[in-house]
Every structure is written in C-alpha cells, then in structure tokens.
C-alpha cells in the first residue's frame, strides 16, 4: 500500500475545496434563477442571467476543474514514483493556498491579482510534474 504523502493530503483538501466551491456557486445560482429552472433540463438559457458576482463564482469553479486534474496527476505520480520531497510538498500547499485565494480574487475582480494567483498555482503544478518526471 502506498503511504499517504503530504501531496495526497493537499490533494484531498483541494478536492474538498472544489466541493465547497460547488456550494458557493450553486446556492446563489439557485436563489437567482430559481429551482424551477435549475432542476429543469436547461434546454433554454435562463430568462434572467446570473448576477455578475455569481457568474464569477461559476467561472472560478470551472477554472478549478482544469487546475485540479493537472494537480491530481502531479500528486498521484509523485506518490507512485516515490518522489515526494519537502520541495514538492511545499509546491502542493502553495497550490492549495493559491486556489483558496483565487476565489475571492475572482469574486472581487482583482486585476492582475487573479491572474497572478492563478499563475502561482499553475507554476506549482508544473514544478511538481517536472519533479515526478525527472
């Protein structure tokens, strides 16, 4: 059995963050559009669009899916290849911190803060993937 590495702990927390982001988006979206629309097959666009802030939470959620699939592979391959070091663990928590900060950065439309925070998480993932490969 593979041991639980710090990277896998960070990955679990990142997945929980994603679940939390779901709620952060789904609750206001349901309040704004009404369950009549959200529980329908959504064949048509809603008659009233989402508010700006809720739409931003939706895009933050979508963006985290992309970040999370790369991060998942980085954490799992580092663990399987036995390449976990203090550096890769630091990268994993840098990713997690960046993804937490990304949500308010998107919500408040911070520019270029949101992009810089995204870049921190992306770079941390790249370094982890390189560590897994080299």
């Amino acid at each position: 059995m593979t041991a639980m590495t710090p990277e896998l702990t960070a990955l679990t927390l990142a997945a929980l963050l994603q679940a939390l982001q779901y709620l952060l988006y789904a609750v206001p979206a349901n309040l704004e559009l009404g369950p009549g629309y959200t529980m329908s097959a959504r064949d048509r666009e809603p008659s009233k669009p989402l508010s700006e802030k809720t739409a931003r939470l939706g895009r933050a959620l979508t963006n985290h899916f992309e970040g999370l699939i790369l991060f998942t592979i980085a954490c799992v391959t580092i663990t399987l290849a036995d390449k976990s070091t203090a550096f890769t663990a630091a990268c994993a928590y840098a990713y997690l911190a960046a993804r937490v900060l990304y949500i308010p950065a998107y919500y408040y439309g911070l520019r270029p803060g949101r992009s810089l925070i995204w870049a921190v998480g992306f770079l941390a993932t790249l370094l982890m993937l390189l560590a897994a490969l080299l």
């Binding site: 980085a74 391959t77 399987l80 790249l126 993937l129």
Partner: peptide, 16 residues
C-alpha cells in the same frame, strides 16, 4: 504508465 501520464499532463499545461 504513470510517467507517461505525468508527461501528458505537462503537455496539456503547455497547451494551456
């Protein structure tokens, strides 16, 4: 297989 998976993840990151 895991190395090839990590390699492909890196390729997708570059595509982004």
């Amino acid at each position: 297989e895991p190395h090839l998976l990590a390699l492909y993840a890196l390729i997708v990151a570059i595509t982004m």
